[in-house]
């Protein structure tokens, strides 16, 4: 029971952070049809910008400024790079973001060096929020949850309550129609790309000090974010939300299960021949691979994802 409660908390916190990352990617994909391979690079940029700002004026201004800066960088990249690549089709766009990820990582090396930087949790947020069954729950994790839920609410309000949000929503499903109605779709694209990358930047600001700010951080989360977007359903924010929480919890709980594949089969009455390496693998060992398994399974059995409405 204790363990379930603690794991659930851990899973939800991690899931919410994943949602911050994947929401931007989902928005971009659903609007522009671009699978932004460099999305995690913007997450990394957010962390580094926030680190830089925190060394000058502290953490709190960085929380606001860093995502905006990342968004501006994203918008510029859309305007002067991606839009050009767009003329050559989706593969070119995808490859553009693919190359961009390389370049961003190298630029980070160039500017901040190749080791990790000392991006600290602010003193106000250091410490334990409460103690549950003898395990501390850090304040910072609570803060992360707060920020991501706040972002979710703000995003929801923006999309459903404002004019621009309605246009974006309309463009999700019927871009041609929106364009025909006289809206400047390229500019909306730029806004969405900037906004999506700013969300990734925000995730970087609060994830960078919870984990470690270093040049490999983009590569570390890059593929898991794709998994979420695919599992949730391409273009579905709600799906991304559910998939984020699902994967956060799967990863947390699977770590807890020290049973091996042999045991799993034994549960249903099949005895596996002993000794093979596969049979001795435990669920814990498999934990980080499970999201990919889930993704492949989803793509085979339900290609439009949990909540998606289109197949590709």
């Amino acid at each position: 029971m204790e363990f379930v409660a603690i794991s659930l908390l851990n899973g939800i916190t991690y899931g919410l952070l994943l949602f911050m990352l994947s929401s931007g990617l989902t928005l971009i994909f659903s609007m522009m049809g671009i699978l932004n391979f460099a999305h995690a690079s913007f997450y990394m940029l957010g962390a580094y910008f926030a680190y830089q700002i925190s060394t000058w004026v502290g953490f709190w201004p960085g929380l606001l400024v860093a995502p905006l800066l990342v968004g501006a960088v994203g918008a510029l990249i859309e305007r002067y790079g991606l839009r050009r690549a767009h003329r050559f089709g989706h593969v070119a766009e995808l490859l553009f973001t693919f190359g961009l990820a390389f370049v961003v990582e190298e630029l980070v090396h160039l500017i901040w060096g190749k080791s990790s930087v000392d991006y600290k949790i602010p003193v106000e947020l250091d410490g334990a929020l409460f103690t549950l069954f003898g395990t501390d729950f850090p304040i910072y994790k609570g803060f992360m949850m707060l920020v991501s839920v706040g972002m979710l609410v703000a995003l929801y309000a923006l999309l459903t309550r404002t004019r621009i949000g309605l246009i974006i929503q309309a463009a999700l499903t019927k871009p041609d129609m929106v364009e025909a109605l006289g809206h400047n779709v390229p500019r909306i694209f730029m806004l969405v790309f900037g906004g999506g990358t700013a969300l990734a930047g925000l995730a970087g600001v609060i994830g960078g000090n919870a984990f470690i700010t270093e040049p490999g951080m983009a590569a570390a989360v890059g593929s898991i974010v794709f998994v979420i977007v695919v599992v949730g359903g391409l273009g579905s924010l709600g799906g991304a939300f559910i998939a984020s929480l699902l994967i956060g919890c799967i990863q947390t709980f699977s770590v807890a299960l020290s049973i091996s594949i042999t045991d799993v089969f034994a549960l249903v009455g099949i005895t596996l021949p002993d000794g093979s390496q596969v049979a001795r693998l435990t669920i814990t060992q498999l934990a980080p691979v499970l999201p990919y398994l889930l993704m492949v399974a989803i793509l085979i059995f339900r290609p439009r994802g949990l909540m998606g409405s289109r197949e590709s």
């Binding site: 363990f3 603690i6 794991s7 851990n10 899973g11 916190t13 991690y14 395990t135 984990f211 490999g216 570390a220 989360v221 898991i224 990863q251 947390t252 709980f253 770590v255 807890a256 020290s258 814990t284 060992q285 934990a287 980080p288 691979v289």
Partner: peptide, 17 residues
């Protein structure tokens, strides 16, 4: 416990265990 190298972001579940 063995975990895949360089793939775990959040070690909280391992610590819980």
């Amino acid at each position: 416990d063995l975990h895949p190298i360089g793939r775990v972001k959040d070690f909280a579940p391992y610590i819980a265990k």
